[in-house]
Design a protein around this nucleic acid. Structure first.
Length: 465
RNA sequence: UCCUCGGUAGCUCAGCUGGUAGAGCAGGUGACUGUUAAUCACCCUGUCGGGGGUUCGAAUCCCUCCCGAGGAGCCA
């Protein structure tokens, strides 16, 4: 057992060490038996492709074990890598020894070697990662996560670990999950009508974060450019293919930055990430382009063009001029609905669209009031098939105007004293945005349900594992 | 939460206007083949989502609940 290197399949397949004796470890994807030998398709999760292993009857355990192997069995194989004489693969491993780590009883193992629906795989969150498509998804997801950190780090952004448990609500972001250590059984049994959170673990009401933005702003005004990338929670009863109760969000925040700079960063980030995945995961993307969404690569290519930029008012004009029979009538002041966003991205511009300067009435208090006093310096990035993937704004840095906006919106100043302090002491113009990580993975894989781009999706009524 | 469509074998589905179920794949056995979601033959598989109702009789009709999908709202 000397002179053997255990290697992962992606290395072997991309740069085959012809004639070398190799050790591989993985799971059997499928097996085809011939009279005196078997073809084993073995995968180890490192790439889409498996390696074909030739196991012939001279192996000591051929009759006792090899012939009984079924999909899902885990194996260690030592063999010699050769060029394959048949079509379908360039390399194959001529097995010298095969040992079985674990069997997978075919009467009960739910994964089959044929294609299975994403809907069915969703019922097997502990096993679906072994499929080609989920493996490709997770490799792309992992690489995107890495690329996001790389993008920000090489531009001098500092990562801020904003709290998962928080006592401040990011207004307008959605319903919070309450975090408590109170005994709920006892609470329900007591006659008290009101929960006394001063008796709770933190001495006040706390919840899971709906956004790290407000906390990130504090450090943007300390160390310059920052970003957060962490789990985010929304207790909304949303049952759609684009919403999760627990998702990951990327939120950069930049000091001395205005809305233009914010939009520039958003565009640069998305283009960088698409280019990175095209370069680093071509086989995984190829799988999705072939089996999930034939137009995927073409659509990703549209991301390399400059994004269409228009103001909310211009968007409204386009929608009014479209003569489309919208279910929600269009007029200045409405929030854009899905059908409006789809028209802009899919029908009018056929690519990503950035809409800026929304009416102040439909946006939260912290967005910077424009000189027209009617709009705020907000921006959304809309992309084909998904809709809103980024929402951001320049923040209101002027103390008096911020206080006025809070009063208008019925936001209690006492609860945001620290946020107001940032405007009282050395305030600076600053801006940022939130990028929905799973929506990005949806867009880049071409998958259609957000539950298939996160390993363990949490949605209303569902939190398996 | 609302609207629409679904839930039948391990999976994907068929089963028209009521007469208690079937095909492909998977699995098993055998044959055959440098095979590629291999091929051929044979075999096995079901509380027809749960509960209630109508009927002589319900997978099929009605009510209700649960679950899933698509769309909407909310947003990332």
């Amino acid at each position: 057992m000397t002179d053997i290197s255990s290697q992962r399949l992606n290395k072997i397949i991309s740069n085959p060490p012809w004639g070398a004796t190799l050790e591989i470890k993985g799971w059997l994807k499928s097996k085809r038996d011939a009279k005196d030998f078997s073809f084993l398709d073995v995968g180890d999760g490192s790439c889409v492709q498996g390696l074909q292993v030739i196991a012939d009857s001279s192996l000591a355990n051929y009759q006792s074990e090899i012939k009984k192997l079924t999909s899902g069995c885990s194996l260690r194989i030592v063999g010699v890598l050769q060029k394959s004489p048949a079509k379908g693969q360039s390399a194959e491993l001529i097995a010298q020894a095969i040992s079985v780590y674990g069997w997978a009883d075919p009467d009960h193992y739910p994964l089959q070697k044929k294609r299975q629906s994403f809907e069915f795989l969703r019922t097997l969150p502990h096993l679906r990662g072994r499929t080609n498509s989920m493996g490709a998804m997770i490799r792309i997801r992992s690489r995107l996560s890495y690329a996001i950190h790389h993008f920000f780090q090489e531009r001098g952004f500092h990562q801020i670990h904003t709290p998962v448990i928080t006592t401040s609500d990011c207004e307008g972001a959605g319903e919070m999950f309450t975090v408590t250590s109170l005994d709920l059984d006892q609470l329900m049994a007591s006659p008290a009508q009101q929960v006394d959170f001063s008796k709770d673990f933190f001495g006040q009401k706390a919840g899971l974060t709906v956004s790290g933005q407000l906390e990130a702003e504090t450090y943007a005004q300390a160390v310059g450019n920052v970003y957060t990338f962490g789990p985010t929670f929304r207790a909304e009863n949303s049952n759609t293919s684009r919403h999760l109760a627990e998702f990951w969000m990327v939120e950069p925040e930049m000091a001395f930055c205005d809305l233009e700079g914010d939009m520039d960063l958003a565009e640069e980030l998305l283009q960088y990430l698409v280019a990175d995945i095209l370069a680093s995961c071509p086989e995984d993307l190829g799988l999705f382009n072939s089996f999930v969404d034939k137009g995927l690569l073409a659509r990703l290519a549209t991301m390399q063009e400059p994004f269409q930029r228009l103001t909310y008012s211009e968007a409204i004009d386009h929608l009014l001029a479209s003569k489309q029979p919208f279910e929600y009538p269009v007029s200045w002041g409405i929030d854009l609905h899905s059908e409006h966003e789809k028209y802009l991205t899919d029908s009018l511009f056929h690519g990503p669209v950035m809409v800026s300067n929304y009416p102040k009435g439909i946006k939260p208090f912290y967005m910077r009031l424009n000189d027209d006093c009617k709009t705020v310096a907000a921006m959304d990035v809309l992309i084909p098939g998904i809709g809103e993937i980024i929402g951001g704004s320049q923040r209101e840095e002027r103390l008096d105007i911020l206080q006025q906006r809070m009063a208008d919106g019925g936001v209690a100043e006492e609860e945001y004293q620290w946020y107001i302090d940032l405007r009282r002491f050395g305030t600076v113009p600053h801006a940022g945005f939130g990028l929905g990580f799973e929506r990005l993975v949806l867009f880049i894989t071409g998958l259609s349900n957000i539950r298939d781009v996160i390993p363990f999706p949490r949605t209303p009524g569902s939190a398996a594992l």
